[in-house]
Structures are given as structure tokens and as C-alpha cells.
Amino acid sequence: MAKKIKYLVPAVLLFCVGWSYRMPSYLNPGVYQLSPRTTWSSLPASAFKLVKDDISSAEPKDLKAAPQIKAGQKAVYASFTLGNAGQKVNYLAILDEKAKWQSLYVDVNGDNCFDEQDRVDLSFEEQVRGNRLKYTIEPVVIPVSYKNSAGRIIRKKLQVDIYLFYNPNNSLVETMHRVVTWFEGEGRFSPKKGLEYPVRFALVDLNGDGNFNNFSEDAVYIDLNYDGVFGQRERVTFRALFDLQTATGENKQYRQYVFPWPYRLAVVPVAEWESSSFYDPVDDAEFPVETVNPPAVAEPGADKEALPRGVKK
């Protein structure tokens, strides 16, 4: 008997723990408002994945101004793309005379200049797997261009962390970035037939391209246990199409719709979606935009007098 109880105890404990955990399902049909967030204490570390950037020792083609690279210094250029309008974000890391990766210049305004206002200090250093790591503790704020469904450019601010990995000889191994802006919303959720509850959810740009609608690559977290934080186990599959059992117990195929910079997340029945136009992001009254102008392009030669001291043309 004692032996039986011995096995029974862990079985009952496992059952109880498992019982309190609801398997992730998905949000009920509806259109849910989203708001951007930039602090990440509610999400697990794995929600902000580092994405490798393109490195080059050659200057970017359209570079207009950059700090002078003195003798003994080394410059490395890297870039990543953000948004659905193909906005390339260039940055420059400089290995100084003391063999330290101390300065980072991020061309946040896309004017092809690395000037003093683009400078970010890299103060913190950590050891990771035999290599060293420096990163931007305070995220870099980048205005990103998004093309909406009407073909208009809207600009939204995205917060990005940049990481430099280098070996003990100070050779840069790789550079990486991660998007730390995420979206929060409140949706409806049916844990079982006949019940429907409000629930908080998060939308995360996991692949770091600045677009929040990469199905299967980005992630949705639902706070299923109502503890106020999104755990790793609360991540649900982010798919365009899926079957869902509604509160009435009916099974239907649904489509999820999210824009690259999302104002709302919509879960709509596929059949209705085809003939519906209720989800139109071009309605300015409902979707205010910060600016509708693309980044200013300087006239040829206009930058000649504006070059800061110490920068080359």
C-alpha cells in the first residue's frame, strides 16, 4: 500500500499542476485594439530574439558624412532593414586607438550621415561564450517608414537594441539587433465551451524586421493564467489561418489580420473576410498617423555647409 501511495503522490501533484495550466488556444473572433509598449519586464527574455546583421568594412554606397577614422582606428559598417517600405538602417562601429569598441553611430534619420547626434555610447561589456559583448543599454529610437494598404508612407518610432560581439583579439565576430517595441491588447478568450473571458495579450516582432505581421516568425503571448506577465508557456502559434471552436462550440476556419505596424488585430471568419471591408487602415479618423511624409531627401549639394566639424564629405 505504501508503495502505491509513493507513486500516487507525484502523479497527483503533476495532475494538479497540469490542471491549473490551460493549454494555449487562440483569441476569439473580434477586432482588438493594440497599443505600443517599450518596457519589456512583462515578457520572457526569449521574446526579444537577436537577429544577425550584415557587416561590411566598406563604406555604404550613399554615405555623405562620417567621423574621421584616424590612424590606428578601424571602422565596421553594418545594417538591417526595418518596416515594409525597405528602410535600411546603417550603423558604424569604431574600434578606437586603445583597441576598444567604444563608439557606435546609428543613422536614425536615414540621411546617410553619421554625425555626433547619431552617436551612442557602448559602456557595458559582458563575456559570452569566450567572446565579448557590448550593447546599447538604452534602446535606439528609430523613426521607421511603413507603407500602408493605400500605398501611403506613415512613420512610427521603433525602439531597437544593437549588440556587438567580438573576440578577445577585438575582431568583430558579428553584430546583431533586436526590436524591443511590442504591442499590448485585450482580447476575448474561451477556455471552454460556453465561457468567454477578457484576456491580455502581447504581439512581439520576433524576427526583428520591424513588421509585426510575419506569421509563424513573430509571436503572440496570451496571459492565460492572469498573473500579469507573459510566460514562455503562454506563447501561442501565430498563424494567418486556423480553425477555432467558438464559445457556442462551433468549429470554423478563421483568418487573422495584422498590419506591419498594427493598430488592431482582427480574427475574422474566412468566409466573411472575403466579402468584408470593415477593417480598413486608411481611415485617418480612426487611424491617426504621426506624419505622412517619407524621410526628407536633401537636394544634391545641400549638405555641403551643414557638415559638422570633423566629418568628411
Binding site: M1, A2, I5, K6, L8, V9, V12, L13, C16, S20
Partner: peptide
């Protein structure tokens, strides 16, 4: 046997 039963009850309450 009694000790295991007590353990079981506490385990359940904890879980």
C-alpha cells in the same frame, strides 16, 4: 502509510 497520506494532503494543498 499515515506519513504518506499527510504528505499527499499537503502536496495537494500546495499545488
Amino acid at each position: 502509510k499515515r506519513r504518506w497520506l499527510i504528505f499527499l494532503v499537503f502536496g495537494l494543498l500546495f499545488a
